[in-house]
Design a protein around this nucleic acid. Sequence first.
DNA 1: GCATAAATAATCAAAAATAATCAAAAAATT
DNA 2: AATTTTTTGATTATTTTTGATTATTTATGC
Lengths: 249, 249
Amino acid sequence: MLTQQRYQAILKILNERNAVTVSQLTELLNTSESTIRRDLTALDEMGKLNKVFGGATSIKHNSGAIEDSVSQREEVMIDEKNAIAVYCAKTINDSDFIYIDAGTTTSKLIDYISNTKATYVTNGIVHARKLIQKGLKAYIIGGKVKPLTEAIVGVESIKSIKNFNFTKAFMGANGIDIDSGFTTPDIEEALVKEEAIKRSYVSFILADRSKFRKVCPVTFSDISKCCIITDILPTPEFAQHTVIKEVMK
Amino acid sequence: MLTQQRYQAILKILNERNAVTVSQLTELLNTSESTIRRDLTALDEMGKLNKVFGGATSIKHNSGAIEDSVSQREEVMIDEKNAIAVYCAKTINDSDFIYIDAGTTTSKLIDYISNTKATYVTNGIVHARKLIQKGLKAYIIGGKVKPLTEAIVGVESIKSIKNFNFTKAFMGANGIDIDSGFTTPDIEEALVKEEAIKRSYVSFILADRSKFRKVCPVTFSDISKCCIITDILPTPEFAQHTVIKEVMK
DNA sequence: GCATAAATAATCAAAAATAATCAAAAAATT
DNA sequence: AATTTTTTGATTATTTTTGATTATTTATGC
């Protein structure tokens, strides 16, 4: 990773919240403490952040009131989602053939991907662009473009997915329930998810703890068919039905 | 590849993302590290980018005279291209099933499309987003995402196109010549164009007069197979070989 | 205030990236 | 066709960055 990119990443993270620790940054950017400290010193000298004992704080706290409330409402569970994304990104290795589902959780995952040898397939238009812009080998599946989410859906997309055999699939979900399995509000997106999981050797559901015990209109997979990557399991009974990784435990 | 072309390519890549590494550029432009380094040094001295350790970052937000000169050179014949786009947009009617080729000329076409009943298929990522954002029914073909142009190419894309039967195809071309036909610099994009034309009832080539009598490395269609929509025909002999509409006459 | 733990700065060797150099290949010139 | 010039890619020496280690500083509890 380029030094400049790291600078940008740190400033972006610091813009989302208004304080960050050195250890958080080492995890998030997958680098050593020394490097983070040097970066913070440099950025502090540039006047881009305030270096404090333990980490750094954002320089702009004056015009914050309105903006803070907006970003807070939109970005709930930032740390949890970041931790999940970081963990998943690390599991990718050179020979992998990865499917990335459309959605915000998986979009965050792309931010932390560093493996340039693996091949990536997605049904998200924004995801495809993000992958390409990171210099990764990206494929997009064909089909109808869904207006709101800019995800590719429909019969053509199902057909398109059938060309591939993934080693790993990273999926989003709106609800996780023992009886109803993994669920989502949109039937067309559900069909694509179902097919992607079917064509993948292992499938991971990226979901923070707020998704548990929720049921949405359409089920796309049985609870036992996918591993769950979450921050902390709210209730232990889910562990009896599938493999679960708690990244914040 | 020409040195100047490489310069342009590097600046384009750097315009899309805001940072790039030397190793990424060697992959993308298929050349050695030495060459990339020399290019970056040259472009840095010209003030077109910031050379940093590991690669380069874009000079952004400075709104300087440099950017103007670049965009000016890229955006030649604006009026002509607009006139062509307006004419083509008008030919679309309710029952049409339209293919829109990736590229800047066809991107402009989307700006002027008003028919919401027709269905649109494209191999351009930016094109698909534009269509959706205009509230049009859009499909994207599946396949590999080409870094520079963000166009979908490769064997999967050819397979994906075979699902469709278009009533009209709007295509871009870099060269038009009576003997060599319609040509483009990239072989992978050429294959997609070829298949799209094959699967369309009528195909239109959108090209301003500067494209005539030019020949690029790869031919994707015979001159007689597509109608040409241009501003003004520079020499009359082309009219003997295919249907031509001159929108500025 | 002192002891303890945590965080930081300083130091240094390894790794990565770069500049300099040079011969081969390509392009332009005669 | 031969010569010169330019460009390219490989090699080597140098510089920069990085991460581990150690010494120092800072915060916190008693």
